[in-house]
Design a protein around this nucleic acid. Structure first.
Length: 174
DNA sequence: TTAGTGATATCC
DNA sequence: GATATCACTAAA
């Protein structure tokens, strides 16, 4: 495998339907008091703007969704069910509320378990994954095949949006 | 199948 | 102000 390259603005500044399937196989790095935690992403989901009824920004700008309108690479971290932190990275052009939910890594399946394993909490909300000294993403050159599937936990969305295969799962590596 | 947990949105 | 909902998980 090649050297460890930090993902730059260009990576995130594409449509979420290009970014989210590119995430499985990449690494997330989080600098903590005890050193750098690094895990390989195995699953991601796309949330694609105000037209996507599954996306939190479907109803437009609110205090919560504000970060989704920020520059690509911005972290959107929020608490779900009072217990689980969800980690997302904003994609697309600034002003376009898209994000990729990082759903799982090889050793922690499920978005809540992933953030727990990486010790990620809401203090990272709004930080920039491109320039932050605390959290960033890396490419070590690993290539992989990715399978599409419907998104999880979005029963509130329209039937059309529920069906979209915008969940991207690492299938195999080469 | 269901409890747990708290921020947020949406309604008075 | 109150209430309903929630991009989930662990336990039963």
């Amino acid at each position: 495998m090649g050297e460890l390259l930090r993902l730059t603005r260009d990576f995130f500044a594409r449509d979420v339907l290009e970014v989210a399937p590119d995430l499985p196989g990449k690494l997330i790095a989080h600098r903590t008091q005890n050193g750098i935690l690094r895990l390989r992403i195995s699953e991601a989901e796309a949330y694609r703007g105000e037209q996507d009824t599954a996306c939190h920004a479907h109803r437009g700008r609110t205090r919560r969704t504000e970060v989704l309108y920020g520059p690509p690479g911005t972290l959107y971290v929020y608490l779900c069910y009072g217990i689980h932190w969800m980690l997302n990275v904003v994609t697309g052009r600034e002003g376009q509320p898209q994000a990729a939910l990082v759903r799982a890594c090889l050793t922690a399946e499920g978005p809540g378990k992933l953030t727990k394993a990486l010790q990620i909490t809401g203090t990272l909300n709004g930080q920039d994954a491109v320039s932050s000294p605390e959290l960033w993403l890396e490419d070590d050159g690993l290539r992989c095949r990715v399978a599409g599937a419907p998104r999880v936990g979005i029963g509130y969305a329209s039937p059309e949006d529920r069906q979209r295969p915008w969940r991207f799962i690492l299938e195999s590596t080469d």
